[in-house]
Amino acid sequence: MNVIGFIRDNASLVLAYTGNHIALVLVVLALSLGLWISTGLLISRHERLAGAVIGLGNVIFCIPSISLFGLFMSVPGLGLGRRTATLVLVLYAMMPLVRSVHAGIRSVDGTVVDAGKGMGMTGLQLLLKIQVPMAWPAVFAGIRVTVVLITGIATMATFIGERNLGRLIHQGITRGDAEMIIAGALIVSVIALALDYAMGRMERIIISPGLQVQGGERPRVGA
């Protein structure tokens, strides 16, 4: 079996599929981060909404991705292709992102918030100077899960006409071509791992060293 050989022989096709795949993932990621992080922040301040929103995210998450593609492709204005693919993947990203933002904000030590409030921070200052920075580790964990997830599920968009790495796998199945399947799977994994790695680097830059305690120990706050 010669996966490398397959990739070399079909370089332009593989490259085009890879490009499409990454483009779709990045667009979805950008939209999801904007939409779901703000949703997560919103429901952290309105606990009543939280249950309903997270519940909705869970329900969406439990629907097989192929079903979501199948359901939305019939909606007028969406149809086969990029628009439906983007929408479905953004919906998929809802659960891990919203939940991690919500959990991150909620896990912030109450005494720290109390101290901030006692020093005269306004609600917005509490959010931006205390809750958000302290929630970053949890949020980043959610972002990394989402990146890997979206990269994988994006392969399914091939069934509604996306020309990405899923097509290599799908055609590999149809033709019984193992090299084609493995090539597709391999490149998807590499993309997922690379994006995860990039996020890991970014995490180290963004998250305060005060929260990056070695040995997995939670930072000791207070006494």
Binding site: G116, M119, G120, S208, G210, V221, G222, A223
Partner: peptide, 30 residues
């Protein structure tokens, strides 16, 4: 309330230092 609180020092048992800020940044908060 925030304006009032900025004129009143507040110390609690759990200290409540912000873990993501250095000591100097913590003191510089108000």
């Amino acid at each position: 309330p925030p304006t009032l609180r900025r004129t009143i020092g507040y110390v609690i048992q759990q200290v409540g230092l912000l873990p993501h800020r250095t000591i100097a940044q913590n003191i510089a908060l108000v």
